[in-house]
Design a protein around this nucleic acid. Structure first.
Ligand code: FES
Ligand code: FES
Lengths: 153, 153
DNA sequence: ACTAATTGGACCGAAACAGTACTGTTTCAT
DNA sequence: ATGAAACAGTACTGTTTCGGTCCAATTAGT
């Protein structure tokens, strides 16, 4: 269905909320604040901590805090942290493709990958809480990336 | 991992190859031509036929042919035909989200959805077969376009 | 030093996915 | 009319990934 995992969904919510807090915040608090089940938010934060998106403080009086301001964390970063690398292809890196030599368009997939990554990188967590950016996206979405120039001909 | 299903991968390959043939082409022929296992390519074509992406000709001397020229079929169309609708959110339509009322950023997800859909719609199957773009990609493909704090596998 | 609070990492069940096989229906060639 | 070729649809099975839960390691405070 090409949907990002629910964990990633929750991660974005948790991070945005975390960015609005002062100091460190614990999993239970974040859970109550967002409505996400406690075990789930705990797991999400754990993963994000290993990826360096959030800083964890262990022990009593511990908790999590954002490693970077909300504006500098892109959706792509969160997805990568939770779901792993963004490679739509299944072919480019893994190599477990049966075709490979016969399909002929192996390299072209990078086109798609770049497009996706570009789109995902242009949205930050700050945009997710800020309603003013909705209009700005309209101009940002112009398909003027690096699509084949003569491909449209 | 945010990857499109392998079926979709195969679908793109099959469609591009199909667009380079004259008249109708059978599944076995397409299988040999692409290197994709016969049963799989058959399944993919079947799905694409129900979605109207390809036209099927039944009976002896039958086969498949593209419903539209390659230039008019976008990657997004193929993904939607195989994997279903592109909704990254899991929240907007399904409604099986535990947070919903407390998360507060439900509407903002459309931002992400639009970005993805736009990126995917701007690439056509014709772009995938065009090898002149391959070289161009080498120069234009930014090595890292988003911050990867510690992308250790 | 002890205790309580909190994160870290491992484990397990469930669901979706990829692939395969079979049977039926349609059409062309003989 | 008959037989073969090719698509259509359904059902089944093995595998992988995802979502959720549980227990162990770590630290602050008393
Ligand atoms: S390498 Fe996987 S389809 Fe070409
Ligand atoms: S509706 Fe699902 S996280 Fe907000």
């Amino acid at each position: 269905m090409l949907k990002l995992s629910k964990l990633t969904d929750y991660a974005v919510v948790a991070l945005v909320r975390l960015g609005q807090k002062e100091g460190v915040t614990t999993s239970p608090v974040l859970s109550r604040s967002t409505g996400i089940p406690e075990p789930t938010v705990a797991k999400v934060l754990k993963i994000l901590a290993t990826q360096g998106v959030v800083i964890s403080q262990r022990g009593a009086r511990g908790g999590y805090r954002l490693a970077s301001p909300l504006e500098e964390i892109s959706i792509a970063t969160v997805i990568q942290a939770i779901d792993g690398p963004i490679s739509l292809t299944t072919c480019v890196d893994g190599g477990d493709c049966d075709a490979r030599s016969t399909c002929g368009l192996g390299e072209q997939w990078d086109l798609v990958n770049s497009a996706i990554r570009n789109a995902l990188s242009s949205i930050t967590l700050a945009d997710m809480k800020n309603h003013t950016v909705t209009d700005r996206l309209e101009t940002m979405n112009a398909p003027t990336m690096f699509i084949a120039p003569e491909a449209t001909a």
